[in-house]
Design a protein around this nucleic acid. Sequence first.
RNA 1: GGGCCGCUAGCUCAACAGGUAGAGCAGCUGACUCUUAAUCAGCCGGUUCUGGGUUCGAGUCCCAGGCGGCUCACCA
Length: 488
Amino acid sequence: MTSRLERLTEQRLASLERIRARGIDPYPRSYHPSHVVQEAVAAFEQQGGNSPRMSLAGRIISRRSMGRMSFLDIRDHSGKIQLSLRHDLLGGERYELLQDIDIGDFIGAEGKLFRTKSGEVTLEVSDFVMLCKSLRPLPEKWHGLADVEKRYRQRYLDLIANEGSKNTFVLRSRAITAIRGFLNERGFVEVETPVLQPEAGGALARPFVTHHHALDQDLYLRIALELHLKRLVVGGFDRVYEMGRVFRNEGISVRHNPEFTLLECYQAYSDYHDMMRLVEDMFAHVAREVLGTTQLTRDGATIDLARPWQRVQLREAVRTHCGIDFEDYPDADSLRARMLEMGMEVEPDKGRGRLIDELLSTSVEPGIMQPTFLLDYPVDMSPLAKRRQGDDRFVERFEGFVAGMEVANAFTELNDPLEQRGRFLRQQQERTVDEEAEIADEDFLEALEYGMPPTGGLGMGIDRMVMLLTNQQSIREVVLFPQLKTKE
RNA sequence: GGGCCGCUAGCUCAACAGGUAGAGCAGCUGACUCUUAAUCAGCCGGUUCUGGGUUCGAGUCCCAGGCGGCUCACCA
């Protein structure tokens, strides 16, 4: 380390030794404050300025010293408060201990609250104890921590220095609680299914591979929750969900972290119309719980998550946005030719489904601001969804979009085991040219053969939902420890 | 993986056209019993991301590399 930081640390180590020399433990076991800061202030205001004796604890975040009187600001999880420490009240020995107390240390303090001349509620400290000595200087109080890389690598500093960042993650937690509450209220049962799997199915994505030594077998980190949750529907969990981490070995971007949190839920005796209703209600519920409103502001526009969301046929949406009716092009070759003709860059290996997906993600998705469901996807994009009644080319599937971002994906689940097997086979045939095709999961197929009731299923990216609710443009701002390359 | 941009004190940022690397905060010493971005006086503090090169002289120009941001590609 550089000499400057070394010197600061040396000074603090010297303080630490002086504290020990006084017979004080700088790292005591516990401290039980009578109040948290916010409650203490609220009680004081309520009682018209009368204060009982109380104790508070927190990290020192700033300090103003005027000789025989000092003010410290401390902060706990609920807020910050000013402490007043006076030489005449504490006595010389106690007051001198302040010499060895730095910004960043934790202390516990007891006394009574009063209001200063300028009106700030302040604890008049009659005694205080050291709770933890800090050996490194905190980021600067006024500008906070701005270095983006440092904010991600040392998130704890970001949380200390930037209140907004902390608020984002508190909101994330509340959103997740709200989702659980919403689903539990409706009779859904939360479960946990394996992260390590012999085959990574349920989505089209490149998995991470690992190895189990005792079994001497390669295992994959899951890329979706789908196939196990549907096994549970077979097993009689009529309403089931899991909110869990999935892993995709693909590019990293402002919308993609290699591991992210996915909610999937399945409701027996339902179809994708019911799932649309569920998505509308869930978004509105969560927004009300964490924001107190269903309205968001994004890029200066107001977005209202309250239902009803717009419903547009995918085919219509693609046709209006880029002038291609993909039903005029029944195979990959003709569609690709059309796209090339329009000047689009097209990977030569992509199947028809992936080409349509490209049309969707490049021309349609970015333009959708208000909550919208695109419905009825071509069957070749969706091997796990049930066909539309009366039109074999499409499946009953929708994706939900808000602010140019995909936030939900749902369908009427395919529960015909023979057709499911056929769909898997077709995917595997395409696999020779397309690495990320769905793999036939024999165990899953066997489960389906026992019979799965008609079921609606839904997947939602929690990180993206939090991005919406917190108006963040990057997924790294809503993931506490985003994936970064190791230094050196 | 491609393109563009960035990396200077613990933190936030300066440094013209290539000419002794600066400031604020934090820290240290002193003064100060209602301050709150406390104030006042003084002081300390640098591998300018790394390694090469050009030059009398490089934070600055060139080459290579590292890490990050944005973007494109990739991506259920």
